[in-house]
Structures are given as C-alpha cells and as structure tokens.
Simulated assay, not measured.
Amino acid sequence: MPAPPPAGRPDRPARIPARRTKGYLRALSQLVSQGAQKAIWNKQERITEELLESLAIGRSRTI
C-alpha cells in the first residue's frame, strides 16, 4: 500500500500541470515559474489550480 501524501498536499498534484503542458518540460518549467512568481506577487504564496489556469504558456493560452 502506498504511503499517504504529506499533510497539505493533494493526492494528484501533477494532473493539472501535465494536462496544461502536455508533458513538455520547457512548458512545465515555465508554468511552475510563472505560477510561483504570480503567487508571490499576489501574496498568496501558494500555487493553486485557479492560478495555474490563469497563466498563458508560450505564445497561446494553451498548448
């Protein structure tokens, strides 16, 4: 049986970034970097699903 996720972490943290980036590492890196910056600027200091959905990747909204 797998260990439970650490407290405060979702069971499936990679589904949203994987869906948004279609597995491309450069796009994933950009998404996480932009998400972290926006979370800090907005004083949330947490990367949420809503925050990730609000970000553009590359030249378009989605890949």
Rank of each mutant, 00 (worst) to 15 (best):
M1R: 07
M1G: 07
M1P: 08
P2Y: 03
P2I: 05
P2T: 06
A3I: 08
P6E: 08
P6L: 06
P6V: 04
P6S: 06
P6Q: 06
A7K: 13
A7W: 11
G8H: 09
G8R: 10
G8F: 06
R9N: 08
R9V: 09
R9D: 07
P10Q: 10
P10I: 09
P10T: 10
P10M: 09
P10R: 12
P10G: 12
D11S: 11
D11G: 11
D11N: 11
R12T: 12
R12H: 12
R12C: 12
P13L: 10
P13G: 10
A14I: 15
R15C: 14
R15T: 13
R15K: 15
R15E: 15
P17V: 07
A18K: 14
R19N: 12
R20M: 14
R20Q: 12
R20C: 09
T21I: 11
T21P: 13
K22E: 15
G23A: 15
G23E: 13
L25E: 15
L25A: 15
L25T: 15
L25P: 15
A27K: 14
L28F: 14
L28C: 15
S29Y: 09
Q30I: 05
Q30E: 07
Q30G: 03
L31W: 02
V32L: 07
S33L: 03
S33Y: 02
S33R: 05
Q34D: 11
Q34C: 08
Q34A: 11
Q37S: 08
Q37W: 02
Q37E: 08
Q37F: 05
K38S: 05
A39L: 03
I40W: 04
W41F: 04
W41H: 06
N42V: 03
N42C: 08
K43Q: 05
K43F: 04
Q44Y: 03
E45T: 04
R46G: 02
I47D: 01
I47V: 09
I47T: 02
T48W: 00
E49F: 08
E50G: 07
E50V: 03
L51H: 02
L51Y: 01
L51N: 01
L51V: 02
E53N: 14
E53D: 12
E53R: 13
S54W: 00
L55A: 01
L55C: 00
L55S: 01
A56K: 10
I57W: 00
I57H: 00
I57N: 01
G58Q: 00
G58E: 01
G58C: 01
G58A: 01
S60D: 07
S60E: 07
S60Y: 05
R61V: 02
T62Y: 06
I63F: 03
